[in-house]
Design a protein around this nucleic acid. Structure first.
Lengths: 207, 207
DNA sequence: ATTCTTATTGAGATTGTTGTCAATAGTGGC
DNA sequence: GCCACTATTGACAACAATCTCAATAAGAAT
């Protein structure tokens, strides 16, 4: 029967949803600002002014918090991608617009650092929902495409690969690489946007 | 005067260089196989069958080991890049050969995971040596290039950006993305090699 | 052999993180 | 007001990682 010390500050009682939302928000800030290792129960709790045991109460464990964060960010990423792809298919934006949106979610949204973290910690399967979006996207575009330019499937997956990898790379090391080469940060986006038509509708080669 | 327990196994005495080399080798294996968090003094020591205090003796601290590993890998990366660039400039290989070499060092060499780790842990300045290589490369190529295709500097940095970011992205998340799209791993290399001439010698646009 | 250097080791001390457990205090329902 | 539910907390245990320190042993030099 251990006795408990007198309470110093007033408790703030939140709904479970709100508590979880606050924690995930804080964890994401930490991820983007200081990297994956900074996401500890203590750090998140301190950032929110609550005890770390409360986080365990809501997420079950430290791993639970990590998984929840990954899940949330993957959901957000897929959602943004879905909308961007839909707009592009409907002809409501230029290649540059599309590329910008993808680059933005990987960079500012933290999806790039998130993906790097997930892969580096050996949990690649957590990225599967993104794969699902990509696959249905490819299927949809194929249905609406004309067959004038050879293998439709190949062209579309090539373009997707190009944009995704470039956006990812740009988000994680674009800052370093850009400053090394003395180029402004947006350069990569322009290059990709200009190359996109070449991949989607390549000039006919020998056939 | 604490007494020390009897020695169980024979000590293996190495030269400092050999001990450091072994440790770095082991640390690199751990990085590639299990991610940055797996590189602990204990894990490396266990892998080598030595005590972790010995690693502290040779590297000063856990951070010292990390820095040494980063330094070594960055040196190797820059060296490989230098040679590849030199060969490509001398016309001794196709675009595909060049791209393959860069992709390979980022992937198998672990440079991709290394770079991601460095950036995620906020030590981007450790990548500066790579920047130096890239800059002298750009200067060299500019000197030998003909001026027929507009802004030489812009074209060359664009191509470098493209290859570097793509190789990095491919090394870190290429496996996941590739399997999501049901494409073989080498697809990205082919795409980049095909696009390279378009960036280096773009078809003239309106001028 | 003897000495000297230093690579190597075991034993704690320390710290940070995760996790358990019982006690406490908001909040809504009665 | 009273009660049940549970979000929240403090105390403490368990563990892993880093690091200090003195002791030890391998190899070279003399």
């Amino acid at each position: 029967m251990a006795t408990q010390k007198k309470q110093l500050t007033k408790r703030i009682r939140r709904t479970p949803e709100e508590a979880r939302a606050l924690a995930l928000e804080s964890a994401r800030r930490l991820l983007i600002a200081e990297g994956p290792d900074a996401i500890t129960l203590q750090a998140v709790a301190a950032d929110l002014g609550m005890s770390h045991t409360n986080l365990i109460h809501h997420f079950g464990s430290a791993g639970g918090l990590q998984s929840a964060l990954m899940g949330e960010m993957v959901r957000e990423l897929t959602s943004v991608l879905e909308k961007a792809v839909e707009r592009f298919r409907a002809g409501e934006g230029s290649e540059q617009d599309f590329v910008d949106i993808v680059f933005e979610v990987f960079d500012k949204g933290g999806a790039g650092r998130l993906a790097a973290w997930i892969v580096l910690s050996g949990e690649s399967d957590k990225l599967e929902p993104v794969g699902e979006v990509v696959r249905t996207y490819i299927r949809n575009v194929e249905r609406g495409a004309d067959d004038a330019h050879g293998d439709v499937h190949e062209r579309i997956t090539s373009a997707s690969l190009l944009v995704t990898l470039a956006a990812f790379g740009d988000a994680v090391i674009g800052d370093s690489i850009g400053s090394m080469m003395g180029r402004e940060r947006k350069a990569m986006r322009r290059i990709i946007a200009e190359l996109l038509p070449m991949v989607l509708m390549p000039p006919k080669r020998g056939k």
